[in-house]
């Protein structure tokens, strides 16, 4: 199972944008800056202002990855999927929503917030905004490595006709209510994976998955997500 990485987009505490705009990548802990529609030129997308913080983060990183791959503009819907790995998902939105349920015995529960209480909600938003009709799901790894979404993406591409899929991670952090140390840094990173280079897309290199072997990038074992992004940026140079 092989796929070319043709685009990378991210939002971290350190930086945000497309892979081809940067030479360095890191994913430190800390607080993310607020994400605005103008960050991804989504001012005309009416849903953006209604999105929860988790969805804004995910949608913005997906937007950067698509732009980096030259796939952000579209006229007809495309068979492109999205797979995201997350630890906390929309936990913050869960809390915000349930706080509207507690008073008045549930009669004031917010339908707007409830609509975003699924870890895959932003995949639907990205699908609408960018016309993506492919496979889509969110998942949580039992022992987070940050790489499982890429592995799942390659397995999916093995059988997909179109051969284009976004895979990445998205986490906004653990809500303060739970008083838990963050187990993963806040931020989102997405990779545009393409099975072939039929549209002459520029590639950062090739991911490879075989049998039960670990993930490889340009024939080297992939150790972690941050290193992989940096290797992509270095390889392009």
């Amino acid at each position: 199972m092989n796929a070319y990485i043709t685009g990378i987009g991210w939002i971290t505490v350190d930086s945000k944008g497309c892979g081809r705009e940067h030479t360095h990548f890191s994913m430190p802990g800390g607080q993310l800056a607020e994400i605005k529609a103008s960050d991804i030129a989504a001012e005309l997308y009416p849903n953006f202002r209604r999105l929860d913080a988790y969805s804004r983060l995910g949608l913005a990183a997906v937007a950067f990855a698509l732009r980096d791959a030259g796939l952000d503009q579209w006229e007809a819907k495309r068979d492109i999927g999205i797979i995201v790995s997350t630890v906390y998902g929309c936990l913050g939105t869960d809390v915000d929503y349930y706080m509207t349920v507690i008073p008045e015995g549930g009669s004031n529960a917010s339908p707007a917030l409830f609509s975003y209480t699924s870890a895959n909600s932003f995949l639907g938003e990205a699908a609408i905004y960018f016309g993506l009709t492919g496979t889509g799901f969110a998942f949580a790894e039992q022992h987070p490595t940050g790489l499982a979404a890429l592995q799942a993406g390659l397995v999916k591409l093995f059988r997909e006709d179109s051969g284009q899929l976004l895979a990445g991670v998205c986490d906004i952090g653990c809500p303060p209510l739970f008083n838990q140390p963050a187990s993963v840094p806040a931020g989102a990173v997405f990779f545009m994976l393409e099975k072939s280079r039929g549209r002459k897309a520029q590639s950062y290199g090739q991911l490879h998955l075989s049998g039960s072997d670990p993930l490889r990038f340009n024939d080297n074992p992939v150790t972690d997500l941050t290193t992989l992004v940096q290797q992509c940026l270095d390889f392009r140079l």
Binding site: F137, A138, R159
Partner: peptide, 22 residues
């Protein structure tokens, strides 16, 4: 190790699809 798939009302269908794909 394992994974938990969450995709609203299609979660377990997708889990079975992914298991089959693996």
């Amino acid at each position: 190790s394992g994974m938990t798939i969450s995709a609203t009302c299609a979660s377990s269908t997708i889990a079975l699809a992914h298991g089959a794909a693996l």
